[in-house]
Design a protein around this nucleic acid. Structure first.
Lengths: 200, 200, 200, 200
DNA sequence: ATCTAATCGAGACGGTACGTCACGTCTTTGG
DNA sequence: CCAAAGACGTGACGTACCGTCTCGATTAGAT
């Protein structure tokens, strides 16, 4: 977590509760409306109920701290079964919807998106470790769908992918206050994208 | 702009160039990555090349200033012809896409979305004056489409609307750096949403 | 007063009431506790009930304004009769005592004394035009007293002069709140300085 | 100095050098011509070579700071021996004269006198703790002088006291630039006040 | 009677200083 | 060695005031 191992030297041990208290503090504050640049280590320390020193000792910069916060909200990647396209898409979309529903995680990601320019390293890491693999997984499912004849071959798979994912991302971005049901919503989206809105 | 009518009072006139210089400064800074809370009237004054005084004289708070900035990036609402559903949707979506392409406007709106909690009045106004009327216009088009038999009556029009709009909103939220062609992109989205990704 | 003669050109005349209102304002403010550096032309204008412009038009700097204020509180120099030393000293001291009693004048002079370093030109002028002539007058009276055998020839006339004047100056300096009777006080001082406190 | 006892709390100690640097700065600036109202804690900090923070941390207002400055220039009260009246007066007057000669102390007191109205608490404290006891001591000496037959019983002791003290106070008030010799000057004043200027 | 020029109050302008506040660092006491 | 408290210098913020400049309205001599 904190990268450097203590190496078991003498003296008082670091309070492990402080680590999570600090990370929780970040998520609480961001969820309450704070921006990543606006947050200061001082404010975080106050919210976490520890001294400034205890924060600075663990992380030199906000950047490094946010990296560890990002790790925290990461979740195991969903594994599509490969049985049928619709089902696989449902697995992927439902995982995304659940992340959107998690207010702390989506607040953090929304903040990060808005300030990508200020935290390029953070944003890149978020993209590479979280976004890219999931996007690739969805593309694999769609490609397989085309092979199986369940997806029209004449449409851009990237566009289909974007159409499936965008409604949930837009909700995350706007911080939509109304709860959504992950299972139901993702199913509705898939149905509509596959069948189309026009009468067949 | 500042609401009060001239009334020809005594004293030196306010420099009208300063008004737009300040508003431009806000857009420039937000586009460069600043957050709405992070921006200070001082920084804005410096960027605009006017004295702090001249900013504080016009707007007491950032909130009021941002309101006028929002007015600036407002645009005439597109008017669907009513001829056919596909064409009307294209008119509406293209207008949205053009806003997404306008880097200054979309940066401002992205920032506002991310900090809606901090600027509730601003966010409400943005929603009521910009989002709501356009959303309603799209709903009207879709309802008419159902009447005409161009849209399936068994799907939730709100969901269709969301699917059409979300890809563009998601781009705006993520600050996608790659240029998109408003005309082409909106047409592709409409095609896919209407026809569906599955073979007919 | 304002030095430059108008030369009878066309245009609106300056309001003569403003001149005295401004000078009065200075005296009022200084009497109320303001320092000469602390006073601003803006505050003076407000107190006088005129616009800033009207002050700046008449005097470019506080220095010049204060010069005219000093003129205002100047008074006709007392004229000793030359009849007898005690009577002549009484005339001079009573004039000084009356100035001390004049709260506005003494406040102004106290302020000037305290900030002599900041207003050297003003202070010099005050000394040359007000202090020096009166001091010289008193020295003349004392010299004549020595010639007449009414003052001991073995004491420094400057010291005698200082002893006579100092009690009143000290009162002026400390802004003594208790009223003093010019006639009575100056007589008491002269009596004591001439006769001495020790039994003869 | 700052009243509160140490109590050995945690945290970094205040730099004691800063305390005296700040107080010295006040005296230096006032001696250079600054007024008490004109002085700002910012200017003091700059002169003292410490941060504004360090000044504001110690004293909330100029008033409180000046109180401590006054303490600094306080001196042990002179103790008359009680042997003879002339000698006792000389002890008291010489102490006053020495204070007058001390440029920093007299500048501070002159400034305080001039702005008594603005700093009433400060002025009252100065009067009660410094002026009153010394005045009382001189009155005691004079009363004893009357009992011993060294002072005429028919003159007001307060007036005698005022005559002795006023020349020195007047010098302090006017910021007389010419050095005076405490020993010699106080002796001359006492001689003249006791013997009188008129031939016996 | 009209023209002209200066004054007047109102108020915008750039600049400067102020007191406050938050930040990240450093230092001390105590566990 | 860590935790907490707190002093330290730096720097930005919003406010207030200053002296100047600009404007419409007013005023009074000159034409």
């Amino acid at each position: 977590m904190n990268a450097e191992l203590p190496a078991r030297r003498a003296g008082r041990r670091r309070d492990p509760a402080a680590d999570s208290a600090i990370i929780d503090a970040v998520l609480d504050l961001v969820t309450a409306g704070a921006t990543l640049t606006g947050l200061s280590l001082v404010a975080i320390a106050k919210q976490a109920g520890v001294s400034r020193n205890s924060v600075y000792r663990r992380w030199k910069t906000k950047d490094e701290l946010y990296l560890d916060v990002l790790e925290t909200i990461n979740r195991p990647r969903p594994a599509p079964t490969g049985a049928d396209t619709r089902g696989d898409l449902a697995v992927l979309l439902r995982a995304l919807a659940e992340r959107v529903v998690d207010e702390r995680a989506s607040s953090m990601l929304r903040a990060l998106n808005a300030e990508a320019a200020t935290f390029p390293r953070l944003h890149r890491r978020y993209f590479e470790e979280i976004v890219a693999p999931r996007r690739e997984a969805m593309n694999r499912v769609l490609r397989r769908g085309v092979e199986r004849g369940e997806i029209r071959p004449d449409v851009d798979p990237d566009l289909v992918s974007e159409l499936l994912v965008a409604p949930l991302l837009a909700r995350m971005a706007s911080g939509g206050t109304d709860r959504l049901d992950p299972e139901r919503t993702s199913r509705q989206i898939i149905d509509l994208v596959l069948s189309g809105a026009a009468p067949s």
